[in-house]
Amino acid sequence: MLTSYTVKSKNSDNVWEFKYDLNGNLKAFKVLSGVLSNQQMIWFFRKGNFPVLESVIKTIWIPNLKQNFEITIGEPDLSFEAFWNSYGNKVGKRKETENKWTRLSKAEKLQVLSSIPKYNNYLKHYPKQQKQYPSTYLNQEAYKNDWKI
């Protein structure tokens, strides 16, 4: 049994995944989205910030890096149902939307799910704008938009 930590940058498209065994030892590290920059590699490896032990994520990363990173403990629910319920506008062709969802990468699914609250907030400020169908939101990659007001 492995414990997963998904680390998503708030300032870029970087998404990383760290997996630890029951003793808190690092078993896997994956870059799910983006590419480590030279500056990040220096910060990780030369400055000794790479979380080889789970305790580093728990005691240092989570409390101190909240302003720059969103850290999710455990496997996030990336099922189609999670998207469908979170999006809320259950219209259009469900099967077509589900097929598109299954073709997305794990990083894209994370990006979609984290963009929905921003999109909903954006729509609150523009009440005359109709919410996109879920299939349109995925097909047009609207989740990549910066939904700032």
Rank of each mutant, 00 (worst) to 15 (best):
M1Y: 12
L2Y: 11
T3V: 03
T3K: 06
T3M: 11
S4T: 13
T6S: 09
V7D: 04
K10E: 02
S12E: 10
S12Y: 01
D13S: 12
N14L: 15
V15Y: 03
V15S: 09
W16H: 12
E17W: 07
E17L: 07
K19F: 03
K19Q: 14
L22V: 11
L22H: 06
K27R: 08
A28G: 09
F29Q: 03
V31C: 10
V31E: 14
L32I: 07
S33R: 05
G34Q: 12
V35T: 15
L36A: 07
S37A: 08
Q39R: 13
Q40E: 06
M41G: 00
M41L: 01
I42V: 09
I42T: 03
W43G: 00
W43K: 00
W43S: 00
F45C: 01
G48Q: 00
G48W: 00
G48F: 00
N49S: 01
F50V: 05
F50D: 03
F50R: 02
P51V: 05
P51R: 01
P51K: 02
V52Y: 10
V52W: 04
L53G: 05
L53M: 06
E54T: 01
E54L: 02
V56C: 01
V56R: 05
V56E: 02
T59L: 04
T59N: 01
I60P: 00
I60C: 00
W61R: 03
W61V: 06
I62W: 00
I62R: 00
I62M: 00
N64S: 04
N64K: 03
N64L: 06
N64A: 04
K66P: 04
N68P: 05
E70M: 08
I71P: 01
I71W: 01
I73F: 01
I73Y: 01
G74W: 05
G74N: 07
E75M: 13
P76S: 12
D77G: 10
D77R: 13
S79A: 05
F80Y: 10
F80W: 08
E81M: 10
E81P: 07
A82R: 15
F83V: 11
W84N: 09
N85R: 12
S86Y: 02
S86Q: 13
Y87F: 11
G88S: 12
G88D: 09
N89F: 13
K90N: 11
V91N: 08
K95Y: 12
E96L: 14
T97A: 15
E98P: 14
E98R: 11
K100Y: 15
W101C: 07
R103K: 14
R103D: 13
R103H: 06
S105A: 07
S105V: 02
S105C: 02
E108N: 05
E108C: 03
V112E: 02
L113C: 13
I116H: 08
I116K: 10
I116G: 08
Y119E: 08
N121K: 11
Y122K: 07
Y122F: 15
L123Y: 08
L123E: 05
K124D: 14
H125M: 15
H125F: 14
P127R: 05
Q129D: 03
Q130I: 11
Q132A: 12
Q132M: 12
Y133C: 14
Y133M: 13
Y137C: 04
L138Q: 11
L138H: 15
L138D: 04
N139G: 09
N139E: 09
Q140D: 13
E141Y: 04
A142R: 10
A142E: 09
Y143N: 05
K144W: 11
K144F: 15
N145V: 06
D146K: 04
W147G: 14
W147M: 12
W147H: 13
